[in-house]
Write a protein that binds this DNA or RNA. Structure first.
Lengths: 191, 191
DNA sequence: CAAATGACAAATATCAATTTTTGTCATTTG
DNA sequence: CAAATGACAAAAATTGATATTTGTCATTTG
């Protein structure tokens, strides 16, 4: 049997996710999360210094598990090379965001909210992605001065397809062909 | 002397702009606009069938005067050719949006709100821009199957720099160099 | 008779009273 | 003594009563 009695950040974050799914982003209070754990809400503040920080923690965990982990697999995948690998990486990023916007609505809303409010956390998330893109670029035969800058530039040129502010546009039936066109233009520019 | 007594759409839209600047987006009511014109608010509804339509009308006028008109001048400017002309066009678009986000805050807020709510109007605005881009592409030596599709693709790849949802990012000191990088990538892809 | 009015109902917004939530911290518990 | 509690003040959200705004339309006006 695990030590059920010790309250950890991880347990609080899990309870936060559950509570968000149950009550929704706007209806979830720190007290609700504490109730789900059968502790006083004061105990939460021993681990997170504000509600904002708690939600940032939950977003960080969510982004790590749902977005970064699968992307790391794509990054490590040695069966692909060059622009093909890079395209698959970006396409996976876009499809993951689109998938969770539909299928994990409340947690996606939390992520969208944190994106507007916590520049630091999102900057870090973007860095993780552009670092991996940069790695793929380095392993490729793409000739470029600054692989990391190229990664950031490609990330920015595809903003419409992965930034949560554009989630409402992802329902369009032409979205895939629009990405194809943007990618074709970028890929042309890489040679 | 003009016929001061006839109430026209144009006069209502002018009063709407003034009232928006005076009271701000959230504090402007149809009644306020009617008061500014010394008419009953019922008269407004003879010309616009709802407040939403009134604000859409005001946005259309604002976009036309502040964005489309100057862009038309750039489009017609025959002193430039090819990708240089196209770059100047997009750069002007981006600079105009950035300028009005700063200097015409309340009307820009109205435009941002309408962007979220009236897909039709924005679709039309985007079409005007991509039509002009397409014209520039046609006049250039760029070799391409479908100039209009290329225009849309370039427009989408630069979303981060002209879509109002990203206005908060335009304050960054690196925004110009970021656009330069994206443009360089696109331009490379055009050859 | 075309244009504007103003009375009206329904939908929204506002305000102040009340409740809940957030965040702190002195005290308690194991 | 480390971890959790629960009492507390301050901030924020909710509620319900009131006022404003939106939208309609029968009537008035020029």
């Amino acid at each position: 049997m695990e030590k059920l009695e010790v309250l950890t950040k991880e347990k609080i974050l899990e309870a936060t996710e559950e509570t968000l799914k149950r009550f929704g982003l706007t209806k979830t209070s720190v007290t609700d999360v504490a109730n789900a754990l059968d502790v006083s809400h004061g105990s939460i503040y021993r681990h997170f210094k504000s509600k904002a920080e708690l939600f940032e923690g939950a977003t960080e965990k969510w982004l790590d598990e749902k977005i970064i982990k699968p992307l790391t697999d794509v990054c490590k995948d040695s069966s692909m090379v060059g622009t093909q690998h890079l395209k698959t990486y970006i396409k996976t990023l876009i499809e993951l965001k689109r998938c969770y916007a539909r299928e994990d609505e409340e947690l996606f809303k939390m992520y969208a909210k944190v994106t507007e409010e916590s520049a630091d956390l999102i900057h870090n998330h973007v860095s993780q992605i552009t670092d991996q893109m940069s790695e793929i670029i380095c392993r490729s035969s793409i000739n470029v001065d600054d692989p990391h800058q190229l990664a950031r530039t490609i990330f920015q040129a595809t903003t419409r397809f992965h930034h949560p502010a554009h989630a409402y546009e992802w329902k369009s039936p032409t979205i895939n062909s629009e990405f194809s066109n943007v990618w074709a233009l970028i890929e042309n520019g890489l040679s």
